[in-house]
């Protein structure tokens, strides 16, 4: 009888312990919840166009479309790494110098008024790209060319160019394979260089580029399945070449409707450019991602909405007007 009651007490105590620990956890979440709902404090974007030459006008327009959107949604230039051959706006063949348009009607000049290209022309190489991601840059590299992310950074990586199954070509000279890309993301993860990462790629057989990923908290979006080409949208007769790819055209159209305080989620983003307009079939990979994409705001990746806290108390200083030497 005595033994029985002891066991009961032990059971009760255990239950009590469980209750207390559960309460403690939810308390922490409450405390964190209001302030840091998404768990990130800053946003970064790495936008890469891996093509050059006039006939690849559309890839530059793709990258600039995303650049324009993230900048408009609040990521400052200091947190955007733009890798671009940048040979379109001032190309002698461009009938409208210093502009890059996303469509023949010239609705949106994606080149804009201020474009800060961090890696230009022949600097767009696989090596530089991997170095930017992993942070293994020579000490002399200026701050604007570094990806200074931390464990609370959400990173958007957008790439476009000519690719095939498992690789993306860099300026006709070299290529990056999906294994190298996956390893680079793993190296970022190991050093706490991102909190969540959205990888988006507009190229032929795009989804093959995210197949090899194995690092946590990564979402992959590709414009075409393996075996499919990613197609361009339309030709501008005055320019004479295709001026934008279908996927990015509809992506830009979608992002133009997003405002910094918009409540649109990643689930809306996944529906951009269905097969009927895209011709290719966009793919999504979310198995490495822990949150529900339907509850993740677009602006968690494409914008930068900071967490703020109103200050309630301050330190008290004694007035000290005696002049002192400045350090």
């Amino acid at each position: 009888m005595a033994a029985h009651s002891t066991r009961n007490w032990a059971g009760l105590a255990f239950l009590g312990f469980l209750f207390v620990s559960v309460a403690a956890v939810s308390n922490v979440e409450d405390q964190v919840g209001g302030f840091f709902k998404s768990g990130h404090t800053n946003n970064w974007a790495v936008l890469v166009c891996t093509s050059r030459f006039w006939f690849n006008y559309r890839h530059i327009a793709n990258t600039l479309s995303v650049y324009r959107s993230v900048k408009r949604l609040g990521i400052p230039d200091s947190q955007i790494i733009l890798m671009l051959a940048d040979d379109m706006a001032c190309n002698p063949r461009n009938p409208r110098p210093a502009t890059v348009f996303n469509n023949a009607n010239q609705h949106i000049n994606v080149y804009g008024d201020d474009v800060e290209v961090d890696y230009r022309g022949y600097e767009v190489t696989v090596e530089n790209f991997i170095r930017v991601l992993t942070g293994r840059l020579p000490p002399s590299t200026p701050r604007s060319k570094r990806l200074l992310t931390d464990d609370r950074s959400n990173v958007l990586v957008y790439m476009t160019g000519h690719g095939g199954e498992g690789f993306l070509k860099f300026q006709d000279a070299e290529e990056i394979s999906n294994v190298e890309l996956a390893d680079a993301f793993q190296q970022m993860w190991q050093k706490n260089r991102y909190h969540e990462l959205l990888f988006m790629i507009d190229t032929c057989q795009a989804v093959s580029m995210y197949h090899k990923f194995y690092s946590p908290n990564v979402i992959g979006i590709g414009s075409a399945q393996v075996g499919e080409d990613s197609l361009s949208h339309h030709v501008d007769p005055s320019i004479g070449v295709y001026i934008i790819d279908r996927y990015t055209y509809y992506l830009l159209e979608f992002l133009e409707t997003v405002r910094p305080d918009s409540k649109k989620t990643l689930a809306d983003l996944f529906r951009v450019c269905p097969k009927r307009v895209c011709v290719s079939t966009p793919g999504v990979r979310t198995d490495l991602f822990t949150r529900d994409p339907g509850s993740v705001l677009i602006t968690d990746f494409f914008g930068s909405v900071r967490n703020v806290e109103i200050t309630t108390e301050t330190v008290t200083l004694q007035r000290n007007d005696t002049p002192q030497t400045c350090r």
Partner: peptide
């Protein structure tokens, strides 16, 4: 309002100038 505060920083930030060192 508190909702507006986050949006005050971003537009200003671009004008705060570039940083010389790699310190935060």
């Amino acid at each position: 309002t508190p909702d507006q505060l986050p949006h005050t920083i971003n537009p200003v930030e671009a004008k705060l100038g570039s940083h010389v060192s790699t310190y935060p």
